[in-house]
């Protein structure tokens, strides 16, 4: 069988297949739907955020504390902001001791603001294990603790 003949045979078979077609399969259908409402939860912020000045007269620090919400989050994010700048740190505890060294380690300019007499605002957010964060808690102010004649002597509340 030559190539031309084979091509003709194939063409004829193709035409026959196109004419005969494939048997159509059809079936009945029926639909039924069930609706439910899904709502995403929210991460509750810490409550009762307070600031307590601790330490000695020559080296003060501000201890910011808060109460854990229910359910308790995986951790807390503490934001220290002022003068248009902010920095954050995370902890699993329900308090954070704010010191000069902490502020200097987080963001030098924040410490500079404190040295310049700017009052900083400290707020706390709950962080869920998934990464979802709560709204911030109420903010508490901290400022540089000035010791007469010696300059800055740590961080204090208010």
């Amino acid at each position: 069988m030559t190539r031309a003949v084979r091509v003709r045979v194939a063409a004829v078979l193709a035409v026959l297949l196109a004419l005969v077609g494939v048997p159509a399969a059809a079936w009945w259908t029926a639909d039924g739907s069930l609706w439910t409402t899904v709502s995403a939860g929210t991460v509750s912020p810490p409550t009762a955020t307070t600031c307590t000045t601790t330490g000695s007269v020559v080296l003060r620090s501000a201890t910011v504390s808060w109460a854990a919400p229910t359910p308790a989050p995986a951790r807390y994010r503490v934001t220290i902001a002022g003068g248009g700048q902010s920095t954050t740190t995370e902890t699993t505890a329900t308090q954070l001791v704010v010191t000069e060294s902490l502020l200097g380690g987080l963001l030098g300019s924040i410490l500079d603001l404190l040295l310049g007499g700017t009052t900083l605002q400290v707020s706390v957010q709950s962080v869920h294990a998934s990464g979802w964060t709560s709204a911030p808690s109420n903010a508490v102010p901290v400022r540089g603790a000035l010791l007469a004649g010696t300059g800055l002597a740590g961080v204090s509340c208010g």
Binding site: W27, W28, T29, S33, L34, T36, A40, S130
Partner: peptide, 26 residues
Amino acid sequence: YTLPAGSPNAWQGQSAQVAVTATLES
């Protein structure tokens, strides 16, 4: 129903209607 671990934070407190449809075929 599973809320994916990477769901965006913006979904907090939001809701939606979810429909499960069964289509029967003879």
